[in-house]
Every structure is written in structure tokens, then in C-alpha cells.
Amino acid sequence: MSSAESRADLVATPEVALTGQGAGDVELGPRGKRFEALHFALRNTKLVIGASVVLAFLALALVGPLLTDATPFEFGYPLGQPPSSEYWLGTTAPGQDVFAQFVYGLRSSFVVGALAAAIASVIGMAVGFVGGYRGGVIDDVLSMLTNIVLVIPTLAVLIIVSAYLSVGSLRSEAILIGLTSWPWAARAIRAQTFSLASRDFVSLARLSGQGTARVILREIAPNMSSYLFLTFILLFGGAVLTAATLDFLGLGPSQVMSLGLMMNTAVSNAALQLGMWWWFVPPGVGITAIVGGLYVMNVGLDEVFNPRLRRT
């Protein structure tokens, strides 16, 4: 009965209502759906704006360091200069080039974001797929594990761990963040896997002698590819934000420039009170823009992938 209900739900959308079992050529297949997705993607304002912002900063992160001879930690520049044609974003109180710090900092943000998101995605997928597909005791155990890690106050743990282990590199920072941010991804993937696992083509795969791993990789995952993509983007945004927070608190790597570290140094040098806006505003704007852009992209992508949210 529930299968019939969900089918009736499908019938409500014109594509299936027209085809039913009749004129099959109107409904779109995977290739057609990709074309349709691209068509809507290019027209979705949120996606276009969000992606543009993120890509602009990414471009700056890649190209910026090539545009300047200065390195972020190098001293010797004029102290506390506002932006000028020679120093595009001015200099810090102790005499460093802010622009150099900014573009190298952007690089760090992207690197940590991508690495942490990758780690969290892999763990989240492993836990979510296995729990959602197998069900039963295995699912109960994995869910409990997920809930425990979810409930732990991440930032507090990260602060404590960072304080003891002295995070020396971007990689360690990314690993730490990755290891603590996977639970919500696992939960979301588990829920989707549940609903896909009850589909008949999964039963049919089992009846054809396919094992658990094959079923997950070949039947379930390909049918949630857009969802996995969205999850990765959200993890990316979250990781950038968490990294910036840690860096701002002085718990990130101190030998690698990052936007959070910039703000940390700026605050401890009383940049706010001294009115050196060029020192703390760029990193703040950078983080906000990247994270904000990613989240807006996500909302736009959701509309693109889910035909029912479209406004045409």
C-alpha cells in the first residue's frame, strides 16, 4: 500500500502522469536528467551567485600568491600602513604584508576545508550506508556511535585536544575536524539509504546473488549521487568555519598562515581599537563569503536536483 502511495505521489508530477505506462518518451532518463539539471543549474540565481563568490575567492587563493613577492610571515615592511597602491591591503602593526597573509590564508582555508570534508564524508558514508542498509543490531550499534559523537560538544573537545596535542600542520587540523564532523552526514546518508534499500531493485540485486558491498556501491550510492554531493559541500563549509574558529582561538597551526590566525593576531595587537580595519576585515569577509557562498550554493543545488522545489 505504501508503494502505491508513493507512486501516486509521483503521478502528481506531470512527467509521470503523462507517461504512466504509455508514452514513455517524455520521461527523462539519467542522461536527460543531467541535461535538465544543467539547464536549471545555470538559471538558478542562488547557485550562480554562491558558486561565483566561492570560485572568485578560490581563484584569488590560487593566483594571489603569484601576484606578490611578499610572504605572510615576513617582517620588514612599514608598520601599520593602510591600503595603498604598493601594499594592496596595507601592512600589519609589526610590519607584515596583509595581502600576502590574506591570499595564503585563503589557501589554507580551502585546503583544510577540502581535506576535512573528504575525511568526514568517507566516515559518514561508511557508517551511514552500512547502518542504513544492514539495519538490525548493526544499525543500532552504529546509530548509537553516531549519536554519541554527535552529542559531544565538538568545539570543546577540539579545544582541549588542540591544546594538548599542539596541532602543527594543516593536515592534523583537518584530520581532527574530519573526525568530529561526520555524524550528521552519517545520519542523513543513513536515512536516504533506508528509503533506497526498500526499493525493489535492491531486493532484485540480492536475488541475483550480489553481496552487501556490491549492493551499496553499485545500487544505492549511484542513486543518491546528488545528495552525496550536497553533503560534501555542507561539510566543506562547516570545516572552513570550524578551522577559522580554532585558528582564531590560537589553537590552529601557528607556522601556517590562515584567516583565523590573522584575526587572532589582529585582535591581540589591538587592531580594532587602533582602527586598522584592513587587518581584520579582509579575513572576516573572506570566511563569511566562502562559508555563506557554499551554503547558498547548497540551497540552489537542492532546488536544481529536486524538481519539486523548482519555481518554473
Binding site: 507512486r7 525493489d200 531486493s203 536475488l207 546473488g209 553499485r218 549511484p222 542513486n223
Partner: peptide, 18 residues
Amino acid sequence: YGRVQGVFQDPFSSYNPV
């Protein structure tokens, strides 16, 4: 499974759409 098989209710759900 080589001797006992099944066919289900919803033909469109029985095939992996990709």
C-alpha cells in the same frame, strides 16, 4: 536463487534507474 526467484509489484522500482 538459481531455482527460486521473484518478481515484484512495481516494475519501475525493480530497475536501477541509472
